[in-house]
Structure formats: structure tokens, C-alpha cells
Design a protein around this nucleic acid. Structure first.
Lengths: 201, 201
DNA sequence: CAAACCACTTGACACCATGTCAATTGATAT
DNA sequence: ATATCAATTGACATGGTGTCAAGTGGTTTG
């Protein structure tokens, strides 16, 4: 399978990822990538028919390297709805930094680039399924605050966990990753969990 | 003052705004704008030295036309911290749709376009000052939940009110404007207001 | 009345990134 | 020996921004 993939192809994917993480996504030209790999610009087109296809492939590559699937399974050892909520927010808060550069690159071209949008939507659908799983666990425990319908709660939960919110809090406001995780856990529990008591500070 | 501004300049600004609102921000070329106004592409450059300057000027134009300043004052008739929170979220929730197209356009070029980024940052600083005002009113009333420091609360409040969150909830999840306002008010109260009791639904 | 000025026009062009095409090289497999 | 394959080189089309120079038509001013 993976031995089937050409070495150069992998080098291109790795270089693309690295440049995007470093360069805030934009400003990464095909020629930059080629130069980083040590091949000609045209050689990149031998492996990926255009910039979009390269970006989508990079998304999949990153998923694979980071082991998204495995990590998505891990947090499910939690049992109660509240524990699942905490574990999922923690998982996601730790995962975002690893994919942030690529996420930013995809978002930057989201409006103009259909395939990039598709790749991004796939990713977001995966997150949403984690949110659905969490809210359903709260419903199962009869712990979802009564003012929320299931579907609205999923929408809101998913929105709160957006990469943009993580970006605003950590990159713009200067929060640490743990601060993000703790505050987000606290906010979501106080909003969604019936009878949840905020801890006294 | 405003009589000083050339008619053509105003036409360009109005056309730019209208095209950006309509066209999701991207895809609006200098030639599109010129055509909409009924002048040559080069004539646009007689009024704005480049695309960026035009966008920044459009931002100011929209602020003026929408009366941002006046509307920011209005919601301050509210007295208690909780009332201010509600009024501010309502004001902002009603204001976003009017500036959404332009906001999207500015965000789309945020990474690559320094002046657009500056214009956007100015706007966001204004929102942030509304958030600060609100949280300070809660602090004054001794109503801020003890787990939050003032500064963290401001950061979080401001993040929650981002245009991106509004976009995800209304454009992606399909929420109505009122749904956004009510849920956001409820969320922020249950997070920030000490001893706030969620209503039984 | 003529000169200067003004907003605008026309057309050409440089720049830069993406993507295409054709001809060529050099190594490996048959 | 030869076919194949990855990669190279160089040229070129496209599309949008921004620049430049020369010209036009109407209004103001000496």
C-alpha cells in the first residue's frame, strides 16, 4: 500500500505540510514546494495535477501521519456523557495545533477552491460526528440541559470547537493550549449539562 | 465634508460594497467594480491607488452608512450588567448580517493583505471594547462568575461574538438570526453571570 | 478667446502565479 | 539494444493587478 506510493510523492506531501505549517498557509507556491523537495516545479505536476489536488492529498497525508482515526477511538474509553465531553474537548484541543497550519491554508482558499472546500468539509464532518456522539451521550444520561434540543446542542458544540475559535483564543488572545481546553470544557459543561455547578473560584 | 468627496468616488464605494455583499467577497475584480459604476478600470485607480486602499475605504464607508457609532451608543441605555450583556449581543447579532459580505471579503485577504488586516483589526477592536464594557459592568455589579478573571472573560466573550461563529451557526447550521441571538445570550449568561439559573424548558 | 485644468478614456505593457506542452536526459528493467 | 519511466529544460497561454503615456471633452480662469 504505502510502499506503492513513490518516494518523491511523499517528499512533496511532507514538504507541502511543513511549508504550510511554517508559512501560515498562504504564500506557499508550487515553486516553493518544488524547491524544498529539490525537484523542478513541473515535476510536482507529474504527481499532482494541480494545486488543489496537492492540498487535498496533503490533508489525507496529515490525517494518516497524525493517526487521527486511532486518536478518535481513544477518547471513547470515557463512559459517562460528562466524561466524554471532557475527553473529546481535550483530544480536539490537543489535535488542533498539529493541523493548524494546514487548516489555515485550506480555509484561505475555501471560497475559491472547491476541492479544498471538500477536503475541509470532510474534516469538519468528522469533528461534528464527535460532537454528535458527545451530545447523544448526555441525552442518554438524561444530563442535557432542558433548554437545548439535541440538534441545536450539536450545532453549538461543533461551532464552539471550530479552529477559528481556537485561533482567536490562542493566537490572538495569547491563551495557552491548556487554558483553551479548561475554559472550553468549563463553558460547555455549564451550558449543556443539566444542573451543572460551576466551581467556586 | 461629505460634499467634498467626489460623486464617482462614492459610486465606486457603493458598487464595491454591493458587489462584495452579493459575490461572497472574492471574485470581485477591479474591472467588475469599474463596469458596475460605468467607468473604465483605470479610472478606479484615479480614486484609490490599489485594491487594498479601496477595501479599507469601503469599510469606513459602510461604517458610516450603517451608523455603527450611533448604534454602539444606543445599547448603553441598559443599566445592569446582565441587561447590557443582552443588549450588546442583540445589537451585534443584528449588525453582523449588514456587514457580513464585506467582513467575509476582508477575512479572505486577511493573511495576504496588510491594510485589509488593519481595517479588520480596527473593527474587531471596536467590538472588543463593547465586550470589555459589558464584562466591566458585570464586575461592577459583582455578578461575574468567580471562575473567570476579567481579562479572560473579555477574551472569551469577544471570541464567542466572532463573525465566524455567526457564520457557522446561521449560514452552515441554518439557524435564524433570532435563534443565534437567544442562544448566544443564554450561553453567555450561563457562563459569565454568577448564580445564573438556566430556565427550565 | 485661448490656455490651463480636470476627470476620464484608450491601449499597451510589466509582473507574477498557475497550468500546459514538447523535446530531451539518464537510469532501470526486459 | 531498447522500451519505459521519472525528471529536466524552456517556452508559452491565461488572468488579474498595477503602471504609463497620449488623447478627449468640458469647465474655469487670465
Amino acid at each position: 500500500m504505502s510502499s506503492n506510493e513513490s518516494e518523491t510523492r511523499k517528499k512533496i506531501l511532507a514538504a507541502t505540510w511543513q511549508l504550510m505549517e511554517a508559512g501560515r498557509g498562504h504564500e506557499v507556491r508550487m515553486s516553493d514546494i518544488a524547491e524544498a523537495v529539490g525537484i523542478s516545479r513541473q515535476a510536482v505536476y507529474l504527481h499532482f495535477s494541480n494545486r488543489t489536488e496537492l492540498m487535498v492529498a496533503t490533508t489525507h497525508y496529515v490525517d494518516e501521519v497524525c493517526g487521527l482515526d486511532k486518536r478518535l477511538l481513544e477518547y471513547r474509553s470515557a463512559t459517562s456523557g460528562v466524561e466524554i465531553l471532557e475527553a473529546f474537548v481535550e483530544f480536539w484541543g490537543n489535535y488542533i495545533p498539529e493541523i493548524y497550519g494546514l487548516a489555515k491554508a485550506l480555509l484561505a482558499v475555501y471560497e475559491t477552491d472547491e476541492a479544498a472546500a471538500t477536503a475541509w468539509n470532510d474534516r469538519m464532518a468528522a469533528v461534528r460526528s464527535g460532537c454528535r456522539n458527545t451530545i447523544d451521550a448526555l441525552v442518554r444520561d438524561e444530563k442535557l440541559a432542558p433548554e437545548w434540543s439535541r440538534d441545536e446542542a450539536i450545532d453549538f458544540f461543533w461551532t464552539m470547537l471550530s479552529v477559528q475559535n481556537w485561533e482567536l483564543l490562542t493566537k490572538v488572545c495569547g491563551w495557552s493550549g491548556n487554558q483553551y481546553i479548561e475554559r472550553m470544557q468549563s463553558l460547555l459543561k455549564s451550558s449543556f449539562v443539566k444542573g451543572f455547578q460551576k466551581k467556586d473560584g
